[in-house]
Simulated assay, not measured.
Amino acid sequence: MSSTAFVFPGQGSQRVGMGRDLVADRPDLIESHYRVADEILGIPLTRLCWEGPAQELRAMPVTQPAVFLTSVVAHEVLRGHGVVPDVVTGHSLGEFAAMVAAGVLDLRDGLRLVRLRGELMDSVNRTVPGCLGVVIGVPVAGVEELCVRAAADTGEVVEIANLNEDRQIVVSGGLAGVAALLKYADEAGAERVLTLDVGGPAHCSLLSGIEEEFGRAIDGLDLRDPVVPVYSALTAAPVLDARQAAECLRRQFTSRVLWADTVRALTDFGVDRFVEVGPGKALSKLCQRISPDSTTYRTNDAPRLAQAVAALGAVRSPGALVR
Rank of each mutant, 00 (worst) to 15 (best):
V128A: 14
G133R: 01
A74F: 01
L120Q: 10
V62D: 00
G118W: 02
S172G: 09
V67Q: 01
T70H: 08
G137K: 11
D109P: 05
N164F: 08
A102C: 12
L111T: 14
C131V: 13
A150N: 01
P139H: 15
A152L: 13
T154P: 00
P85T: 04
S92M: 06
H81L: 09
M60G: 08
V84P: 02
V128G: 08
L93M: 07
P85M: 01
E156A: 02
R167C: 11
L116W: 05
A59N: 04
D153V: 15
V104S: 14
R108Y: 02
L163Y: 14
N162L: 10
R115G: 13
D122C: 06
V170T: 10
N125D: 14
L93R: 06
A74N: 03
M60Y: 03
I160N: 06
P139R: 15
L132C: 04
V104R: 08
I160A: 07
A152V: 10
S92F: 01
R126P: 08
V114P: 10
A150S: 12
V104P: 11
T154G: 01
V134N: 07
Q168R: 09
G137Y: 11
R126V: 12
A74C: 06
I169E: 06
G137N: 13
V62C: 06
V143S: 06
S123K: 11
S172E: 09
H91S: 04
D109Y: 07
R167S: 15
V77Q: 00
L113W: 06
L111H: 07
R79T: 12
E159W: 01
R115I: 08
V148A: 13
V73C: 05
A74G: 07
D122P: 07
V170R: 01
V135W: 10
E144K: 15
S71Q: 07
D109G: 13
G155Y: 05
F68M: 07
Q64V: 04
V72W: 01
V138P: 06
V158G: 00
T127V: 12
A152K: 09
G118A: 14
G133P: 04
S172D: 08
V158P: 00
L132P: 01
D109Q: 15
T89C: 12
E145T: 15
Q64T: 06
A141Y: 09
A101S: 15
V157P: 00
R108D: 10
V138M: 15
T63F: 11
R126I: 06
M99K: 12
E159D: 09
T63Q: 08
T154S: 04
V104W: 11
E144D: 14
V77L: 05
